[in-house]
Computed example of a mutant assay.
Amino acid sequence: MNGEGKVVCVTGASGYIASWIVKLLLQRGYTVRATVRDPNNQKKTDHLLQLDVIYSQLIYMSQPLLLILQAELIDPAVKGTLNVLKTCVKMSSVKRVILTSSMAAVIAHASPTGPNGVVDETMFSDPSFCEQRKQWYALSKTLAEDEACKFAKANEMDLIVMNPGLVIGPILQPTLNFSVGVVVELTKGKDPFMSKSYRFVDVRDVSLAHIKALETPSANGRYIIDGPVIATLKDIEKVLREFVPDLCIGDDKNNEDIDLDLVTYKVSVEKVRSLGIEFTPTETSLRDTVLSLKEKCLL
């Protein structure tokens, strides 16, 4: 119960990663002040009140001691992120801000990483490259993170950035999100990214990393939290056949000439491991994802 007597605000709290952050924070004894776009939208908020935690700790308001900012749920990303940070500057009670960015703000650039390259926290996506390739999600993430870091530096704010990859694992919300939707497509025999290989990271690991970053005084800068192991289509198919016996993924596509650089790069996760994060095996994440989807009648 590390969080007893401490208050954390989670913005965009009804989202996939944010819901898990709320759940884990409450389990650790924190009081969570959750912000959502519409508190009256029961379809998007009821799952937060159904967590197996002390309901009275979940409060919809502001003035937190710590803040976890879900930039991907604020539209537009850059303006929304800065608006929240500007509010934080005015509130002396906010001691540390954790910004959820993405690997999309790390790996989108013109210089190919290659199968033997190593991606770490020193790498940043190139906005010009994102524009040229029409990678608008990567562009929004890159610009939002860049502006947030500039603002934090100018205002002496304790800002930490988390850069998760393709996140899967059980869902708490009642609707399908993009990354878990990838698993749904795979169970249908499709290869949604036409890549032949995938790098997954478990939502529970990502969420715990956010909390560890709050709790570790020495935590600083960026943290890549991406799956250290690459799963081939054959690896994925082997796991999913437990649920779809006649599954055959991607055999109707000719993927032999697909550029695998964005998938087969090596990723350095030593920094996030220093927070005490151990990675859930991909097989476990895939199984738990499918079981969760079945339970919610989304598969």
Rank of each mutant, 00 (worst) to 15 (best):
Cys130Thr: 09
Phe151Met: 03
Tyr60Asp: 10
Val106Leu: 01
Leu85Phe: 04
Leu67Val: 02
Ser128Tyr: 09
Asp75Trp: 05
Gly165Ile: 02
Leu58Gly: 10
Phe178Val: 14
Leu172Val: 11
Ala144Trp: 13
Val180Cys: 15
Cys130Gln: 04
Pro64Gln: 07
Thr142Leu: 07
Ser93Val: 01
Cys88Gly: 10
Gln173Phe: 02
Phe129Glu: 03
Lys79Thr: 15
Met91Arg: 14
His109Pro: 01
Pro174Arg: 12
His109Asp: 05
Glu131His: 06
Val182Met: 15
Leu66Met: 13
Asp120Phe: 05
Cys149Glu: 11
Gln173Ile: 02
Met123Arg: 08
Gly165Gln: 00
Glu145Gln: 12
Pro170Arg: 10
Ala144Gln: 07
Thr122Arg: 10
Ser128Trp: 06
Ala138Thr: 03
Ala152Arg: 03
Glu185His: 15
Ala108Leu: 04
Leu139Ser: 07
Cys88Glu: 05
Ser92Ile: 04
Tyr137Asn: 08
Leu66His: 14
Glu72Leu: 10
Tyr137Pro: 09
Ala104Leu: 01
Ala154Tyr: 06
Lys153Arg: 12
Thr100Gln: 05
Gln173Asn: 13
Ile168His: 13
Glu131Asn: 06
Ala152His: 03
Cys149Ala: 10
Ala144His: 09
Ser102Gly: 03
Ile171Pro: 08
Cys149Asp: 02
Ala104His: 08
Asp158Glu: 07
Leu66Asn: 13
Gln132Ser: 10
Asn83Gln: 14
Lys153Phe: 04
Thr187Arg: 15
Val118Glu: 00
Val167Met: 06
Gln63Arg: 14
Lys150Leu: 10
Gly80Pro: 08
Ala108Cys: 08
Asp120Thr: 09
Met157His: 11
Thr122Tyr: 00
Gly114Leu: 01
Val161Asn: 06
Leu82Arg: 07
Ser140Ala: 14
Leu66Val: 04
Tyr60Gln: 14
Gly114Gln: 04
Gln173Met: 11
Ala105Trp: 10
Lys153Ile: 11
Cys88Lys: 01
Val180Gln: 15
Lys150Pro: 04
Leu166Arg: 00
Leu82Thr: 09
